[in-house]
Design a protein around this nucleic acid. Structure first.
Lengths: 205, 205
DNA sequence: TATGCTCCATGAACAACGTTCATATAAGGA
DNA sequence: TCCTTATATGAACGTTGTTCATGGAGCATA
């Protein structure tokens, strides 16, 4: 027999969702560094202590916000990949899509990489595996460009390729470096990925 | 006439240096997130308030620690560049040197990119320009590979190339992603830079 | 050396933060 | 309706970075 969700369980679920959306909204507007327990609980309409009945701590809550962001990013990349058959063009559009997502969701995207667990605490497995969406659209077009690659080589290359694109996007959006206009950045990134693919093809004979 | 440094000025200079080294050592051992004003001042042998007579705040002190790190990294990259004449090999060795520096100085290197100014405060100009050491060894070998590039194109490409290498190193060293053994990472990075240069050369005819 | 003035080192105090816990409140079962 | 149990509450706590009144040390002058 399946248990009906009791009134208590419904309340708890609603509280978790309210806190999640409140935290997400705060990060979206003020960035991860502007996130405060008291703001979240005020926005969510619960008491300060309520946060800790729904989530272990703030880090845990942030992990769930990042989970939403990774899912959104994953969907967008998947959609891009599905719209373009030619492997070279597809890789370029994936890179441009990543840049677009980062620009359109600056604070949420930054939180993905800025957030750190407390000293000595590992990122939980369930959240670690969610990062796969960052690589998984890259492997297939790479395989088309070089069918001789085995699964492991593909995984490694996908990872490197994402990391390189991420590095360019990441550095360009940091205050630490002189800003590059969005449009220029887009063409620089495109050019860079083109170079990369050319080199990749050149060494495949 | 030049003024002798008074006893007061000497004391102040010594205090600044003690605090700087104490902070650097704490970051080296515990990481940026483990840095505490009370620990620094205890190590430096001064009172808690003393920190604020020598530096504006902790962020300012961290900037000075990062300054040291950037200088050390700059020297190491320069040395690597001076030891290898062939442009392709030089670019590869620079990338490998960057990886080595990051591994050998994990916490100090992480602090370079993890640290954020308080909300609404910009990174001061004097520290911004210090980041040039990250790119400046890259432009010359690139120019050798393609003498037709103008100054601006070289600057852009150097930046992208550094960002890509940094991305690979950075992602690989984060807890967020599955760790790759140092040795494997080194060869993956080498292979990646080779691809990149091949593509770069291929589009230069 | 002695004296008066000007610094600055000091650490208690403060505000802001995440987290906890005794207590009040609401939900579920008899 | 009443008793038990689970949950919500916000005052209180420990730990931050930063400030500030105060005492003491350095410096110019006599």
């Amino acid at each position: 027999m399946k248990n009906e969700p009791t009134k208590r369980e419904l309340k708890k679920q609603e509280l978790k969702e309210n806190l999640l959306q409140a935290a997400r909204n705060r990060i979206k507007i003020n960035g991860l560094s502007g996130l405060r327990a008291r703001d979240i609980t005020t926005d969510a309409g619960c008491s300060l202590g309520g946060l800790y009945t729904a989530y272990d701590d703030i880090d845990n809550l942030v992990l769930h916000v990042n989970s939403i962001t990774l899912n959104a990013l994953g969907s967008e990349l998947k959609q891009i990949a599905d719209q373009e058959n030619r492997p070279v063009k597809r890789l370029i559009e994936l890179a441009r899509g990543y840049l677009k997502f980062a620009c359109d969701n600056r604070n949420l995207w930054s939180a993905l990489f800025d957030h750190r667990m407390p000293e000595g605490v590992d990122v939980p497995e369930w959240h670690l595996v969610e990062h796969a969406v960052l690589f998984e659209q890259i492997a297939m077009p790479l395989a088309e460009l070089n069918p001789k690659l085995n699964r492991e080589e593909l995984a490694t290359l996908s990872r490197s390729m994402f990391a390189a694109v991420h590095g360019i996007v990441s550095i360009s959006l940091q205050d630490r470096f002189i800003a590059v206009p969005r449009k220029e950045l887009d063409s620089q990134l495109t050019q860079f990925v083109e170079f990369l693919i050319k080199g990749f093809e050149a060494s495949n004979t």
